[in-house]
Write a protein that binds this DNA or RNA. Structure first.
Lengths: 224, 224
DNA sequence: CCTATTTTGTTGTAAATACAACGTCATCTT
DNA sequence: AAGATGACGTTGTATTTACAACAAAATAGG
């Protein structure tokens, strides 16, 4: 339990709060933990959801299969990250994407109305949570815009460069591990896997990058 | 002035509030109005911004030009819509996109901290605004996910069908006007204008759609 | 340790796209 | 009214992609 409090403390939702505050807030918010096995669905597109969740352990994929089985991946969620907030609208719109556990995962969910309705007496940190929730969605928004940036590029190579550059920047290093395998990366960038694989091969040949499985290194060669 | 109160009343930010409440809140929030001529920049990528804005009149484009001059359009903003919320993070990240007036426009801006900091005495509707702001970002988030849906399609035709279908659904009619000209639509869907134009022509030939300038009609012919 | 399954790379081909160039028509400006 | 500018459609070509098929390598499960 203690380790999860640590995760919560570092999550966007509880930013700026102390451990003991979190513990009392968990009671106030009535957070509920739930385990999911690999491949299990945390949320299904079409469901109604009025909860906001934090991933405590594991990894989730936010994805979408169309009628013909083509899969597109919106995002990958790691420990401490908030998800589901965007669907939690008052009108009660259905969830747009599937959320699937990529490995054994532990999720803590909060009823949105419990978060948005301040309890006047017990919980002085409540308004902080509301602001944090706003910032969390705000940040998610930015991530989506950045993703648009990647896929707005016209060629597979440009998309790869855009994505890998951002990952390098985010990790503060030219060497980093991505949360996707090849097929998932292709689904994330909306390109064909085999074509992408070929392009990666060419980029390696040309000395731009090195990689092995999902570990990539950008080399000091001027790109473009 | 009165007409703008009406716009505000119908905006996501002030949903559920009455006119007289809005007037008192405007004082509390110190909203500032500003005019922009056609082509003028409301926000520039790279700027710091800590404000949330509502478009009172006109139309804005959220767009992005890369180093080589390729433009991509993230969204079109109409009267009553909220924008800029996503950049208003505490850490003070730079704005990611240009916001440009497509025609003469009137914008009202609020200091984010004024919104998030509740004034304990004067303004009982303040917490409502905070929730609304959350819902507004949340909804924007959904729009982005829906946009991802469109551009995740592989061919220009599929992207067009996806986008036009959604617009038809949104308007509750097979006939509707889009807020883009051809070049802008192409930049929005991340495709080549001429190729898109050709594809639209084919779709018209095949009896799927009709269009003239930016007025489209989806015909009752099974798509796919 | 062996086998089944998954992941990744490679290649060929048909299809789709980007890009450039150009003509027509509409709109704006003076 | 005339010229300039912008929007739209059309066409040809080189480039890029999607798709299918297959082999090699890695991984998972018993």
């Amino acid at each position: 339990m203690r380790e999860f409090i640590e995760v919560l403390k570092n999550s966007a939702l509880f930013e700026g709060t102390e451990e003991h505050e979190i513990i009392s807030m968990l009671k106030c918010l009535q957070g509920k933990g739930k385990k999911y096995g690999k491949g299990e669905y945390v949320l299904r597109a079409g469901e109604m959801s009025v909860s906001v969740s934090i991933l405590l352990k594991g990894r989730l994929l936010i994805q979408n299969d169309d009628y013909w089985g083509n899969r597109s991946i919106v995002n990958s969620i790691g420990p401490g990250e908030v998800f589901g907030e965007a669907y939690a609208v008052p009108a009660g719109k259905p969830v747009l994407n599937d959320v699937v556990a990529q490995e054994q995962s532990l999720v803590m969910s909060f009823d949105l109305s419990k978060i948005l309705t301040t309890c006047p007496t017990a919980c002085p940190f409540h308004s902080r949570i509301i602001k944090n929730l706003f910032f969390a969605v705000s940040k998610k928004n930015q991530l989506l815009v950045e993703k648009l940036w990647h896929i707005s590029r016209r060629t597979t190579r440009e998309k790869l460069i855009s994505y890998l550059s951002q990952e390098a920047a985010r990790n503060g290093s030219g060497s980093f591990t991505i949360p996707f395998n090849r097929q998932q990366l292709a689904d994330f960038l909306f390109v064909d896997r085999s074509a992408m694989s070929a392009e990666l091969g060419k980029m390696r040949e040309q000395g731009l990058i090195e990689f092995e499985r999902n570990k990539f290194t950008l080399l000091n060669k001027r790109v473009r």
